[in-house]
Write a protein that binds this DNA or RNA. Structure first.
Ligand SMILES: [Mn+2]
Ligand SMILES: [Mn+2]
Ligand SMILES: [Mn+2]
Ligand SMILES: [Mn+2]
Lengths: 235, 235
DNA sequence: ATGTAGTTTAAGGTCGACCTTAAACAAGGT
DNA sequence: ACCTTGTTTAAGGTCGACCTTAAACTACAT
């Protein structure tokens, strides 16, 4: 148990987990891109992780987490999101910064601290960006629907940003967009597929790339304007 | 600013700081021993740190922190002790574990988080083990007196454990010894210089090595028995 | 003054985590 | 069937952070 593994291998596991859609293996090139590494380096690392039994590599198709690897990845995601909650809720650090900060902390703690933190925070259900905090038992399935899937005229509410990344969060923060914000899709520009949405009297545009990262759910409280606080916790 | 420096070099700076007595340079062998590295490796690292301008090496005498190095070391000690307070006060983790846990966290955060944490904790004055938390302005001088300096019959109160280390803290915890605990030195065994102290009806023995790491101050509330809670905070 | 203990340098190694360039290869669409 | 694109392997490099063994050296105490 505990398996001694460094920050870098851990980031590979986490990324692999995040990039996985269904059962399909993740092309190493996708991994490499996500991490900003060369494809060759990513291949090397995948091999190392394979030797450790955390990853299964199907040549020319991609890499897949073993169940050990997936467990470890979930643990990391858990730590990451708990730290995010701590940083926002307890330290009042900005919503758009905590992702990167938590990305350091996640590698610096073990089970003892993680579980104590969880209790301390009141066993929160999601991170500040709307993603569920893994716990024992299956993680509640996030809505598969994204802004990219919406049709003009539709109303919805932002559920989560996934996958997260500093720049994306910064862009959203700039426009006051947070999980819980209600909005409507006003138009899809034919060229480039830009999505223009209306949030509380403002208009914000998203490229298709970004749009696919905004998980969306049917608007709950209809009318409920605003767009700021979406701190959903409950266990 | 910010100088990008990894966990390992950081540990060297911290150790150097802790081992420094007055103005004297610290023999590299002492550094090596503290870190559990070979002397050759420690020498290498000292050279690297010298190139970065964080350490000054006087051949055959030892290494000394430059003012840049000392600043960095103080920062680390600050982070370390703040995390310790967090782990004990907020997460209720055991007094004797938090040192090692904080030793990971101290390398995973920058100024932003550190300062927010400090505010959150109410600007504590010391770590759970009695050592002052560095802040801007000179650090209040810790008492130079240790258990090793006491004479049989003397009464005193434990101020701090310095330098800290897992095993030492574990030993103290085992006997219910904490900063704030009042005790008397009952005897110094002629052979081996064992110190036997009396704390609230128990007797505990310390070798000279350990005794020198227990900082001591004149007992404050005379009579005040017990020996547990010594959570001194105040700014 | 000399010797011993502590210190530094030299030399050679390992391993992880990155890089580049270039060649070999396989999958899948046309 | 073929070709293009994406993938893997090979080869060679760098750098940090550790290790060992062995030789050179210096400070200091006797
Ligand atoms: Mn990370
Ligand atoms: Mn998040
Ligand atoms: Mn440390
Ligand atoms: Mn402490």
């Amino acid at each position: 148990m505990a398996v001694e593994i460094g920050p870098s291998p851990e980031m590979y596991l986490k990324s692999l987990f995040e990039l996985t859609r269904g059962h399909a293996p993740v092309p190493i090139s996708a991994l490499a891109e996500r991490l900003g590494h060369s494809v060759v380096s990513a291949t090397e690392m995948v091999h190392r992780l394979e030797r450790r039994g955390l990853v299964a590599h199907e040549p020319y198709r991609g890499a897949r987490l073993t169940s050990d690897g997936a467990t470890h990845a979930r643990t990391l995601l858990r730590r990451h999101r708990l730290w995010e909650r701590f940083l926002t809720d307890e330290l009042n650090l900005p919503w758009e910064s905590v992702h990167d900060l938590a990305c350091q902390l996640e590698h610096a703690v073990g089970e003892e601290v993680t579980e104590a933190l969880d209790r301390r925070l009141g066993i929160p259900a999601t991170c500040p960006h709307g993603n569920p905090i893994p716990r024992s038992g299956p993680t509640p399935a996030a809505s598969a629907r994204t802004l990219a899937d919406m049709k003009p005229g539709e109303h919805a509410e932002l559920e989560a940003v996934h996958p997260e990344s500093g720049p994306v969060l910064a862009y959203l923060a700039q426009h006051g967009l947070r999980p819980g914000a209600a909005f409507s899709l006003e138009s899809i520009e034919p060229t480039d597929g830009l999505r223009v949405i209306g949030v509380s009297s403002t208009r914000v545009a998203f490229g298709p790339e970004l749009a696919a990262r905004l998980r969306v759910r049917p608007a709950s409280g209809p009318g409920r304007g605003g767009g700021a606080r979406g701190d959903e916790r409950r266990a």
